[in-house]
Design a protein around this nucleic acid. Structure first.
Lengths: 231, 231
DNA sequence: CACTTGGGATGACAAGTGTTCGCTGACTTC
DNA sequence: GAAGTCAGCGAACACTTGTCATCCCAAGTG
């Protein structure tokens, strides 16, 4: 995500937008700015571990980022703005995870095992991002909520398209594919949330969550196999 | 929920707890206190429509409840305390809904249709409660989060027990029953959340959500029918 | 009836908040 | 090199906040 943004600003501007075209300035200054921006985002992510976005304060964020309060406004209009930036970041990493899952080969059970493993690892490696998404998906800040919902819907469409190429559901209607995809994505999110909570209490809980998630995915697979196609 | 609490305090104390035994005092005073308490809870519920619990303020709540700030502390130690009270209230109403679902007769498809209808109606009639639960389930206030998780886990056990009595899954192991039950409860919660958002935008969205939820439940039912029992 | 109880209001306290202003100084450009 | 840009700072604004000591008076008690 950060890389995308960076190269976006760096690429010779093929678009006609001149307003923010600063691609002619060499690196140092921009890099410093991006570093500060990153510090703000990380500070937000850190504070959101025990808080909600709607209770976050500008001064709080800048303080933990080691910056003066006024500096915040050089990067974000609002705290909502920072929130939306965090959504983009978090969902970019999650998108990588989903493509990793969908690209896999093997029979159904292998695919299920690998899926759960990938989710568990993603939660372990991107704990703050996952927590942010789960916490603000139904949170009190409307723009952030809308952004998460929109991107998650895009995932559903993407997963539905991928499911359409699988032999198990080749003859399915588009609506049914999207229905199944929605079930999968929802299950994925709730499994990630379970992993999140699990790691904060019992150490063996992660195994239990994984086993349950695998069984649930197998049950859904069985349902898929016997789903009446309209053909 | 309120009625339970009320009658709890009113019933002649068969328990041995003398600490809070005020059952000998006649009604007016207690009723006034309960009325104030209710006003605080309702104010909280109202404010939480556009906020998160962690960003709620004592003054804010008392102001919209028409009360002085100090009055709050006559009823709750904290805002977290108020949050936990709201959890109990919200999950009591949800518990009624679940028993209403489980008590039903009829074949699988009828049961699915009725389930989705009951959920839709519950969301319509207890919007604030449902919103609160969805919002704070993964929210930033640990005690509230824990309370919701605990009560939801109790629901899962209850639903699992009910599923064990159904002929479709009579031979299932306890672990499998709980796995299936978890899938159902998770699906129920996410469907309720979807209804919640749906009502705030497109008017026809509710029908679409309901249709998708029914299809997903049917698919899970198919999976159930073909689940390998250890027999 | 006098007397106790306790829910609620008032007012005050220090500590925190979002946001804006003008300034500085390192980086960039010409 | 001189000129200019602009991220970050310090200070100040006018609030809002949680919490408490204190008083008040309706409800309950004997």
């Amino acid at each position: 995500m950060f890389a995308d943004f960076f190269t976006l600003r760096w690429s010779k501007s093929a678009n006609s937008c001149l307003l923010n075209d600063v691609s002619h300035t060499p690196g140092i200054r921009q890099a410093q700015k991006q570093q500060s921006r990153r510090a703000l985002l990380d500070a937000g992510l850190l504070l959101l571990e025990h808080q909600n976005l709607s209770s976050l304060g500008v001064r709080e964020v800048t303080r933990t980022a080691g910056m003066s309060p006024a500096g915040f406004y050089r990067h974000f209009r609002d705290l909502d703005d920072l929130g939306v930036a965090l959504v983009e970041e978090s969902l970019a990493s999650l998108h990588g995870m989903i493509t990793a899952i969908l690209a896999g080969e093997g029979d159904a059970d292998q695919l299920i095992d690998r899926t759960v493993d990938v989710v568990a690892r993603h939660v372990r490696e991107h704990r703050a991002h996952v927590r942010f998404l789960c916490r603000e998906r139904h949170g009190g800040v409307q723009p952030v909520r809308a952004a998460i919902t929109a991107e998650l819907d895009a995932f559903i469409v993407e997963v539905a398209a991928a499911l359409g190429t699988q032999e198990q559901s080749a003859a399915w209607s588009v609506a049914d594919l999207r229905m199944l995809s929605g079930l999968y994505v929802e299950h994925l999110v709730s499994t990630a949330a379970a992993f999140l909570e699990a790691a904060e209490e019992a150490p063996g809980a992660e195994q239990r969550i994984a086993a349950t998630a695998r069984a649930q995915l197998r049950l859904i697979s069985l349902g898929r196999l016997h789903w009446p196609t309209v053909g």
